[in-house]
Design a protein around this nucleic acid. Structure first.
Lengths: 346, 346
DNA sequence: ACCCTATGCTAAATCGATTTTGCAAACCTG
DNA sequence: CAGGTTTGCAAAATCGATTTAGCATAGGGT
């Protein structure tokens, strides 16, 4: 009952606390920030101050602290799409990690639009965020470069820009795809198609590269006809139609590798729409897991992203940059292996 | 090339701009805040100031503005789970709506833990958010009450507390369930089970109520044995097992109404695990849609939440409270109708 | 010519903290 | 016991804006 008030009655200021304790504001500040010893405040007085702080439940006004110290204790998290399952899961882990380090997250999405990404970065920097966690959209290279030029702490996730010396964390796309492809070839699938998204980002290119390399390694000729690129913002129905056309155009194709979970879901629709059975009429593997893939009969085989590891590593890299102590960072460009999960589809 | 610098070279302050323009800081402030006329700044001088602002690309330091004005232009959004599809979709709409009004969002989740919710509210109020959008977890009633007592702008979504005079927006749970139940009864299903979550929240109670009332209206006795309550944090496998047991225990049950999409997905797993066919062996309807339900054969019939409407209405109610002009708010407790979507499962 | 009100802008107070500087009193030291 | 150093704290500057109060000069009326 008694300690229920101080929460925000009229917002106690540090000055008020000082007055109550009969000391100067600076003294209170020193005590609260653990600089009492350093500033030679007597233990006796420090205790008196702490007593008042406890009793009143005083909480520093974070905006004022922010203004004075220049530290907002806030990080900007920019993802591609706030409702995508991969990004949502990522955000969730990052949120709790940030909390452990005493940071808050401002969470926003580009919807894969470089212009919006650019605006968001500007917005966040106006908001004085201390660092950035970004899953970059195509075309955001310049913006990232600017952040770097201004020496702002940044970590990229899920993708990166080959030319930029910026810390990043992402799955080993090449190896992930290769593992999946090897599995398909092992199981005897002969004519394997690849459906990907039409974007410039490295992770997309790497996945395609993984497909091509595996085939070449097995002495199989890569045919462009067996590769389908779908526009990112192409409407659902249209995408489904083009996947179906793709299947029809490739008679004898017995398996498809989908390069993102979004495409895999479209694939499910397309295949079902054609009345084909998975895996008998058509096998499939998808890069990046999704709830649906666990459930959709017969279960879709996937290369799963180690989301928790990615998020934690990224936070670690960011904290490293934020740390004043600037300990030398061994390696700031990290690729983590994906996890191949076999289900019924291949 | 030329307007590429001013972005954050050394952070230009208002004082710097003033110096460059050869005027007082206050003058610059007045001009920038559209109070030039009111403060009788000559148009000529105002233009001169604006010219300098444009040229330098000056951006006000929002933290300083925040401190001085007490307005953070930030809203707190607390959802139940950041990775739940309903909440993610909600967050997405709210984010863009907030942007339209010039607000930023700090986005966090309770993971259905009242203690964490409580902490989050405290954290957000320390961060000086201007308002709160909350999907409350059970047990957060006191926290909401405190916000109200401190006259903080709040809007609840997805649930509310019957005793509290607080604005809220949610789907009409009762009517939604009734519509689904009527459909099942129309189609001739006789023995309908209800699977829900074991929580105290009104929306959960209302859904159960809808089930019971519909049966009673049709002269059917409600049997407790046909109602299954599953603990919110009960592990997946255990939940699946209890649903399967529930089905076995109710011989002759021909349809199940699932009260949340999470439960519906578990239901899918359970039914498939028992080797039953939907809808022939078991029909189902689920409250709250999900991507899976569109895809999972034969498609799951659902009562869909009008997420966009909920989000927009909630933002409207919040903006209403934030508006100084305090225009009288007609109605601040809103229920919006759900959308019944028929697919193959019932 | 004198007072009074507009006009057009600047100076200074303020938000709530942190940090540097300052200044007594107490404590050596020779 | 004079002179220097340490101790213990307070005063004041600062972060970057907004806002109130103030102060010349110009114009208008009698």
């Amino acid at each position: 009952m008694k300690d229920m008030k101080g929460q925000e009655m009229k917002r106690l200021s540090l000055k008020d606390v000082a007055k109550m304790a009969g000391v100067a504001p600076s003294t209170v500040s020193f005590v609260l920030n653990g600089k009492a010893r350093q500033m030679r405040i007597s233990d006796e007085l420090a205790e008196k101050v702490m007593a008042v702080v406890k009793k009143t439940g005083y909480q520093p006004h974070s905006v004022a602290v922010n203004l004075r110290t220049g530290q907002s204790k806030t990080l900007g998290l920019i993802v591609e799409s706030i409702s995508g399952s991969f990004f949502a899961a990522l955000a969730r882990v990052i949120e709790t990690e940030a909390d452990r380090f005493g940071y808050n997250i401002v969470y926003c999405s580009t919807e894969n639009n470089a212009q919006k990404g650019s605006d968001l970065i500007r917005m966040l920097s106006r908001q004085q965020v201390d660092g950035y966690l970004i899953t970059p959209a195509a075309g955001m290279e310049k913006d990232i470069q600017q952040l770097l030029a201004h020496k702002r702490p940044v970590v990229l996730m899920d993708s990166y820009f080959p030319g930029l010396a910026v810390p990043y964390v992402l799955i080993d796309n090449l190896a992930g795809v290769k593992q999946g492809m090897e599995h398909l070839l092992d199981k005897g699938y002969k004519k394997i198609g690849f459906v990907t998204v039409d974007m410039e980002l490295v992770q997309v290119q790497d996945r395609l590269q993984g497909y091509k390399e595996t085939l070449r390694d097995h002495g199989i000729t890569v045919k462009n006809k067996q590769i389908l690129k779908i526009g990112y913002s192409s409407p659902r129905e249209e995408s489904v139609r083009s996947i179906q056309q793709f299947i029809k155009d490739n008679k004898g194709m017995d398996a498809i590798f989908f390069s993102t979970n979004y495409l895999g879901i479209l694939g499910l629709e397309s295949i079902a729409g054609l009345g084909l059975k998975i895996p008998d009429d058509m096998a499939m593997i998808c890069f990046d897991d999704h709830d649906i893939f666990r459930l959709y009969p017969p279960g879709i085989t996937v290369v799963q992203q180690p989301i928790e590891e990615i998020a934690k590593t990224a936070m670690g890299l960011l904290m490293n940059q934020l740390d004043k102590s600037q300990r030398y960072t061994r390696k700031s460009q990290v690729q983590v292996p994906g996890k191949f999960i076999r289900r019924g589809s291949a």
